[in-house]
Each structure stands twice: as C-alpha cells, then as structure tokens.
Design a protein around this nucleic acid. Structure first.
Length: 274
DNA sequence: ATGTCGTGGACGCCACGA
C-alpha cells in the first residue's frame, strides 16, 4: 500500500451522559451504525468504573479519561488506537479563585485511529456569564485553538479531528429562540469568536454543510419537553484539519437516538471521510 | 411520547451539575 494511501473512516461523536446508565444503548447504536470510531463525552465515571469489556466484545478498543463522577471522555475504535494522550498541551484546569490551584478536569482525550489524530472534547459549559466557569471556558477554547494552530504550523498535512460537545451555538439558528438565550452562555459573542477562531486558523467544521439548518440540533434539554417541542441546540461539532476536511463525504445527526426512554440528551453526530 | 436525568452520600431524600 502506498505510504499516503488512506482508507475511508466513519467518525462519530456523542455526549452519552453517563456510560454506565447508557451502555446497552451505546453498544446497540455502534453495532447498528457501524462506525469505525466513536468519541464519547460525559462518561461520568472513573477509569476503574468504565465498561471496557462491553466494547471489546464487539471489536472496539477503548481509551478513557475519567477522574470522578464529573465530565469523562473516551474514544472507541476498531481501526487502531495508538499514542493516547490525556488532556491537550496547555489545557487549563479550573480554579475556584485566581489564587487557588487549578484542578484538573477530564475533558480531553486523544488517540491516532485509522491514521487520524482524534480528540474527544468536552468543552466547559460556562454556566453563567458572571460565573468563573465562563472565563474558564473561553481560556480552555483559546488554549485548544493554540494547540491546533501549532499542529498545523508544524505539518500542513496533519490529519487532526477535534470532535465533541463544544457547548457553543455558533449561529443564531443553532438555538430555537435567540430571545430565550439573551444574556445566557453558549451564544455570547466571546464564545462564538472562540469557536470561529478555529476556522480562522485553517480548520473546518464538517457537519453543518451536510446538515444545514435552521431547526437542526444535536442537543435537547431533558426539561420542559424540549425534544417533542423541537427546541434544541446545535452544540456538537467535528472540527478538522484541511487534509482531513477535503476527504469529508457526508455527515448525519442521528436524531432518532434522542427518542424514547433512556436516551441521552445529545444525539450522535457522524461524519464519513473518504 | 413526553413537564428531566445522572451522580454520590447518606438514605428511602438531598445536593449538585447540566
């Protein structure tokens, strides 16, 4: 096989909102959807609690990064899982006050799968515009952008995919009602600028072009009947380097997976690379 | 179809995060 040859790769990202509560659904979904790689967020468990064997049984290796019941990220792959990294270089932790030491959080894990460095990312929520978690979120995104920019500067042909729950709605049409989000996180100008900075650095968000809005979402709050009312948010994305972007052949949001009892509040988001 | 869901810790509920 020539050195530069690559195989097709189907890559999914899904905030599963507890892997232990969702394991049957996740395994069923992987088998049904036949993806090569699944990046998961909010596994909500320690490494010692992660159900690795359920994935191994269906032919997937898993790398997990979980410290406690909060956050937690993982990558399942049937096309290799090499050179695992937990947290990206420069990734900040959260400090309760500026003088306090930063506490590490399990929000990023990466591995090389099928020739692509895949990052599974759970961007900090931000909570409120006045909360200390809000500047933390902006700093976290800026550091990630800085990491990504360096990867591209070092190798213009780098195959890098940053997928996950970005907790940013980049366009007004990515929420069901901008008036409702007035003064809230996820739609503020600094968050949108932090997200757009990846495209300015040469990266491309792949899913939107194949799944245009308005009214196309990846997350629906459990409360207030948001899902049946079609009141969601588009906050899960796949942001990839130029060499990978040119291979993108399709994308899909599996909205059906949000239905029924025992669903995560997020839908899986899949991209097919040629 | 459906007025939320998941975690841990001390219980049969509460606090917390989303």
């Amino acid at each position: 096989m020539p050195q530069n040859a690559h195989s097709p790769l189907s890559l999914a990202t899904w905030n599963v909102n507890s892997i232990r509560a969702r394991i049957d659904r996740v395994v069923d979904w992987i088998e049904r959807s036949d993806v090569d790689v699944l990046a998961m967020q909010e596994t909500k468990c320690k490494d010692s609690q992660f159900p690795f064997e359920r994935f191994e049984k269906i032919g997937y290796e898993v790398a997990h990064f979980g410290l406690n019941q909060w956050n937690g990220v993982a990558i399942a792959s049937r096309v290799g899982l090499d050179d695992v990294e937990r947290a990206f270089p420069g990734m900040p932790g959260f400090a309760k006050d500026p003088e306090a030491e930063q506490a590490q959080e399990a929000r990023a894990i990466s591995a090389v799968c099928g020739g692509v460095r895949v990052w599974s990312l759970y961007v900090p929520n931000g909570r409120e515009l006045t909360d200390r978690h809000y500047p933390y979120k902006l700093e976290w995104l800026d550091r990630l952008r800085s990491y990504a920019q360096k990867q591209l500067a070092d190798d213009a042909g780098v195959r890098l995919a940053m997928v996950g729950d970005w907790n940013v709605a980049p366009l007004d049409e990515d929420v069901w009602d901008m008036e409702f989000f007035e003064g809230k996180t996820h739609v503020s100008a600094p968050e949108r600028e932090a997200f757009d900075a990846f495209e300015a650095a040469g990266y491309k968000e792949i899913t939107r072009g194949f799944t245009p809005g308005p009214g196309v979402y990846t997350y629906w709050d459990y409360t207030q009947l948001r899902f049946p009312k079609k009141q969601g948010m588009r906050i899960d994305f796949q942001v990839v380097s130029p060499a990978l972007a040119e291979r993108a052949a399709g994308a899909e949001i599996d909205r059906d997976e949000r239905k029924g009892n025992g669903a995560s509040d997020h839908a899986p988001v899949i991209v097919r690379f040629e």
